[in-house]
C-alpha cells in the first residue's frame, strides 16, 4: 500500500450500500453491530434501528449511508489495527441478522491500518 496508513474505521462497497438502501426503503433505518465468538461470530449483524440496545461502552466505528456501525469496546481494542469494509456475501445469514437481500448476508473485509489513529473512536 502506498500513501499514509489509513485510520481504523469502516467503509462499504457499492453492493453493501445498495443492500442497505433496499432494507431502508423496505422497512426503515438499520444499524450494524460487529459480532464475535462462536459460529457466525466475526460477522457484522444488521438489525432494524433500535432493535439492539447500544451500551455506554460500545464504540461507534462509523456510519454507512447514515446507518451506524458499532463494535464492543473490548473487541475494538483487538480490531483497531484493521480497517473494515462492509460488503455482501453469498448465502443467507446464519444468525439473527437481517439478510443483505435474498440469499445474501453482510460481511466485513479487513485490512491492516494505522492503529495509532484509533483514539478518535474512544469515548463515544
Amino acid at each position: 500500500m502506498t500513501g499514509p496508513p489509513e485510520p481504523p474505521g469502516i467503509d462499504a462497497t457499492g453492493e453493501a450500500r445498495s443492500a442497505i438502501a433496499d432494507l431502508v426503503s423496505a422497512g426503515g433505518p438499520v444499524m450494524f453491530f460487529q459480532s464475535g465468538g462462536c459460529c457466525d461470530g466475526s460477522l457484522p449483524m444488521c438489525f432494524r434501528q433500535g432493535e439492539f440496545i447500544i451500551g455506554d461502552h460500545d464504540v461507534l466505528l462509523g456510519t454507512i449511508s447514515d446507518c451506524p456501525f458499532y463494535i464492543d469496546h473490548r473487541q475494538y481494542e483487538v480490531w483497531k489495527g484493521t480497517r473494515l469494509t462492509l460488503d455482501v456475501g453469498a448465502g443467507e445469514p446464519e444468525g439473527f441478522s437481517l439478510a443483505a437481500g435474498p440469499g445474501l448476508h453482510f460481511i466485513v473485509r479487513s485490512r491492516v491500518c494505522d492503529a495509532s489513529a484509533s483514539d478518535q473512536f474512544l469515548g463515544n
Binding site: S35, G36, C39, L43, I53, F96
Partner: peptide
C-alpha cells in the same frame, strides 16, 4: 442459547 456474542446480548436483552 449457544452462538455468538451479539446474538447473546440480544437474547439477554
Amino acid at each position: 442459547f449457544t452462538g455468538e456474542t451479539t446474538t447473546g446480548r440480544l437474547i439477554m436483552q
